[in-house]
Nucleic acid binder design. Structure first.
Length: 262
DNA sequence: ATGGCTTGAGTGTCAAGA
C-alpha cells in the first residue's frame, strides 16, 4: 500500500496536477492540505472517475484537508474533538484497516506571535487526539503539513532559520511529542540524500536553488513502521507549470515479512 | 529594504502562507 501527503495550496488550481500524479504513482491513499474550498465544491466526481473515494473537511479561502483512497473510507472524523476551532485542519478515516490522520498544522507566522501560541496549543491538542485514536487503532499513520522542520538536517540554511518559526525549539519539542507517542518519521527510517526537502519558497528561485525545508511528514505507529519499505519525496510535481510550493511525500507499506527498515 | 511569489476574494489591493 502506497500512502502519501501533499499540500496542494488550492485544489481548484492543482486538481490537474493531483489527477496526473495519482495516475502516475497509483497511490492508494493521498492526504491533501490547503484545499481552500468548501465541501460543496469539492471535486468528488472527478476523483471518483479517477478511481478514488474521498472525504473532505473544508472551508472557503483557507485551510481544508482531504483523504483520497482507492479503498473504502470508514469512521470519518473531522477536526480535533476536544479543541474548539473554526479552522478546518484535521480529518481522519480508516482505510484497509489503518487509521489515516490527515493534518494541516498551523504555520505560526512568527515566534511569540498570537498565531505561534495558537500553533503550540493546537499541536498539544492534536497529540492528545492522536494518542486516543492510536489506542483505538494501533495501526495509525499521521500524515500532513506539519509546518515543523524536525532538525537542522531538514533546513537548507540552519543558521538563518535558527529559532525562527518552523524551526524553533518549542515546535521541535511538539514534533518529538508525536515520536514519544510511538510514531516514527518514515523518511528517517532509511538512508536519504542530504538536502532533501518538501517545501521551497516561490520567491528568489527557491526551488532551483534548493532553498527548502522538510516540513511535510509521514509518521507511522510501530506496526506500520515495521511494514514500511521506503519513504521518498517526489520533486517532479514541483517542476511543473503553476506548482504547489510543496512536494508530495510517499511511504510504501508492504507485508511485514518483506519490509526492511534501516 | 520586514520585501521577494502565489492564492483567494473580488475589481483595488490586502491577508496569509512558510
Amino acid at each position: 500500500m502506497k500512502i502519501a501527503t501533499w499540500n496542494v495550496n488550492s485544489l481548484k488550481v492543482r486538481l490537474p496536477h493531483v489527477l496526473d500524479w495519482l495516475a502516475a504513482t497509483q497511490a492508494d491513499v493521498l492526504c491533501l492540505q490547503e484545499t481552500k474550498m468548501e465541501d460543496k465544491v469539492f471535486p468528488y466526481a472527478e476523483l471518483e472517475a479517477a478511481g478514488y473515494h474521498a472525504a473532505h473537511n473544508g472551508q472557503k479561502t483557507y485551510n481544508g484537508v482531504a483523504i483520497l483512497a482507492r479503498g473504502t473510507l470508514t469512521d470519518v472524523r473531522c477536526d480535533i474533538p476536544a479543541f474548539a476551532d473554526e479552522q478546518k485542519r484535521v480529518i481522519a478515516a480508516t482505510v484497509n484497516g489503518a487509521r489515516i490522520v490527515c493534518a494541516y498544522m498551523p504555520n505560526g507566522q512568527a515566534v511569540g506571535s498570537d498565531k505561534y501560541e495558537y500553533k503550540l496549543r493546537w499541536l498539544a491538542a492534536l497529540a492528545e487526539f492522536v494518542r486516543d485514536e492510536m489506542a483505538r487503532c494501533p495501526q495509525l499513520a499521521l500524515l500532513g503539513d506539519y509546518n515543523i522542520a524536525p532538525t537542522d538536517r531538514d533546513v537548507h540554511d540552519p543558521a538563518a532559520w535558527k529559532d525562527q518559526v518552523l524551526c524553533s525549539e518549542p515546535e521541535r519539542a511538539a514534533f518529538r511529542r508525536f515520536v514519544d507517542l510511538g510514531l516514527a518519521d518514515a523518511f528517517r527510517l532509511f538512508d536519504q540524500p542530504d538536502k532533501t526537502y518538501s517545501w521551497w519558497d516561490y520567491r528568489q528561485m527557491g526551488f532551483r536553488r534548493n532553498h527548502g525545508l522538510r516540513i511535510d511528514h509521514i509518521l507511522l505507529s510501530a506496526p506500520l513502521a515495521a511494514e514500511c519499505s521506503a519513504c521518498t519525496i517526489d520533486k517532479a510535481p514541483r517542476k511543473l507549470e503553476r506548482p504547489s510550493d510543496h512536494a508530495p511525500v510517499v511511504a510504501e507499506l508492504v507485508a511485514a515479512a518483506e519490509a526492511k527498515p534501516a
